[in-house]
Computed example of a mutant assay.
Amino acid sequence: MKKWIYANALATLLTVAGLSVPVMAGSEDVVLEDAWSRASIGVNRPGAAYMTVRNTGDEAVTLTGLATPLAMMPEIHETTTNAEGVSSMAPAGEITIAPRESVALEPGGLHAMLMRLQEPMREGESFPLTLMFSDGGELTVEVPILGIAARGPED
């Protein structure tokens, strides 16, 4: 428990300082890297958050849900494109990450969909996003909000 508190405190301090470092879960098997989001147009349309979720352990981990005070309905969604080139988006359900593998939450694929925003996502601000895992563990990361046209965490 102490390692989790220290890892999250350090990550929060470094995020506030503008530095990018991985954040470790209490199990020290899950690392979140390069979290980011885009500014929203008001609250009538959903927002999204992106990052890499890396499993550094020797056993699979399963991401089961999300929570944030910013949105009443945060979910993992997946965008797919069919043979005719038509894209659609739907809830992805649970995401299992194999040992020593990672899953990218990125535009055009899996992503954290933030529905029913409680306030606009404003460039330069940030919000906490909690990832919940099947073993009961939770990992919270502070997600910076970039410009509306951002294409990645470096923008």
Rank of each mutant, 00 (worst) to 15 (best):
K2A: 15
W4K: 15
I5D: 07
Y6A: 10
Y6F: 05
A9Y: 03
A11F: 02
A11N: 04
T12Q: 09
L14Q: 12
V16F: 04
V16A: 13
A17Q: 14
G18P: 15
L19Q: 12
S20F: 03
V21A: 08
V23G: 00
V23L: 06
M24F: 08
M24D: 05
A25N: 08
A25Y: 00
A25F: 07
A25D: 15
A25I: 02
G26Q: 09
E28I: 10
E28W: 13
E28S: 11
V31S: 08
E33W: 15
E33P: 05
D34M: 03
A35H: 05
A35R: 09
S37G: 14
S40E: 03
P46F: 14
P46Y: 10
A48C: 09
A49D: 00
M51K: 06
T52I: 15
N55D: 10
D58E: 07
A60L: 11
A60N: 09
A60R: 14
V61R: 15
T62R: 15
G65N: 12
L66N: 06
A67M: 03
M72L: 15
M72E: 13
M73H: 15
M73N: 14
I76P: 03
H77F: 05
H77E: 00
A83T: 07
E84T: 01
G85N: 05
G85Y: 02
V86H: 01
A90N: 11
A90P: 08
A92S: 10
A92T: 12
T96I: 07
I97K: 15
I97N: 06
P99Q: 09
P99V: 09
E106N: 05
E106F: 12
P107V: 13
P107N: 09
P107G: 08
G109L: 02
L110A: 11
L110D: 05
L110N: 03
H111W: 04
A112D: 01
M113N: 04
M113T: 00
M113S: 08
L114N: 06
R116N: 01
Q118S: 10
Q118K: 15
Q118C: 04
Q118I: 03
Q118D: 02
E119Y: 07
P120H: 15
R122T: 15
R122D: 10
E123V: 09
G124F: 04
E125G: 05
E125V: 01
L129S: 01
M132P: 00
D135V: 00
D135W: 00
T140D: 03
E142D: 11
V143E: 01
I145K: 02
G147F: 02
G147M: 08
A149M: 14
A150C: 11
R151F: 10
R151P: 01
G152D: 04
P153D: 03
